[in-house]
Amino acid sequence: MENPSKIIEDDIEYSLGDFDGNRVLYDFDKISIYLNAKGKLLFGDQFRIYDEDKDIIHKLCYYFIKDQKNCQKYDIDPRKGILLSGPVGCGKTTLMTLLRHIIPTNRPYDIIPCRNVIFSFNHLGFKTVEDYGNTKSFCFDDLGIEPMGRFYGKDLNVMGEVLLSRYELFIQSKQRIKTHATTNLDADELEEHYGHRVRSRMRKLFNIIDFDESAGDKRK
């Protein structure tokens, strides 16, 4: 049996904790070492984990490793997806790109900028809504700041329709196919952009994890 507590990157083996033959006993110091190394591979040598982000990273780790005790403590439902919210440049997309690697056996999700969904709709029409309402897992990046879609002269709140489709998929599938997203907007702004019906569905689709409003722009 392979040891699920070990991950190999660039011929270097990283440990995430100890495997007792049935389950992994995760060690967050070891997870941090792995995430730092994987981050440098993905984003370059300038990548680092910031001390002020450790609470957010711990919550995301609890979610991805399905730590039931800590998920319950922080009101995180492992059956739902993640909506990671915070100011521009605080590292939301980076973390959602990075954290999906800590459990290699988990079903991966594609990270799709919402503006790309709109561009696709403008070209292909409602086939785009069908394509992103399928059984794959997605993380929609920069939710809520995308423009309206337009196809043959008709405007559509495309991401609103996609989210409704993803909600139907979520409640109908036995596997609870997940949807993730990142956003710069708060709950009121999302409701203003998508309407009450979509906002209501989002509550059932997502665990909301927020960066502090004072989180700095790491791209500077």
Rank of each mutant, 00 (worst) to 15 (best):
H123I: 04
L143N: 01
K73C: 05
I49T: 11
I57G: 06
S173F: 02
R203V: 12
S165M: 15
S214W: 12
L95D: 04
K136W: 09
I76S: 07
Y152Q: 06
L99V: 15
D212L: 13
E52H: 10
E161V: 10
L41S: 12
G133Y: 02
Y63S: 02
Q46Y: 09
V198F: 01
L60D: 08
R150G: 03
E213Q: 12
V162M: 02
A37T: 09
D77W: 09
D53M: 08
P113I: 05
L95S: 04
T128I: 04
K69F: 12
A37R: 12
N3G: 06
F43P: 06
R219E: 11
F28W: 03
P147K: 01
K66C: 11
F64H: 08
L83Q: 07
G89N: 09
V24E: 06
I103H: 02
I57D: 04
N106I: 03
M159C: 11
K174E: 14
N207P: 04
I177D: 11
L41K: 14
L83D: 08
Y109I: 03
I31N: 01
Y26D: 04
T128H: 02
D29F: 04
E192M: 14
L35S: 04
L185P: 01
F64T: 09
Q172K: 15
D53A: 13
P87Q: 10
L83R: 03
Q46M: 03
L156H: 02
R219K: 09
Y109S: 05
Y74K: 06
I49Q: 08
F19E: 00
F28P: 00
L83N: 08
Q72S: 15
E146A: 03
Y14D: 08
Y194C: 11
D131R: 13
Y167K: 06
I209G: 06
I57A: 09
D51E: 15
E213A: 13
N134G: 12
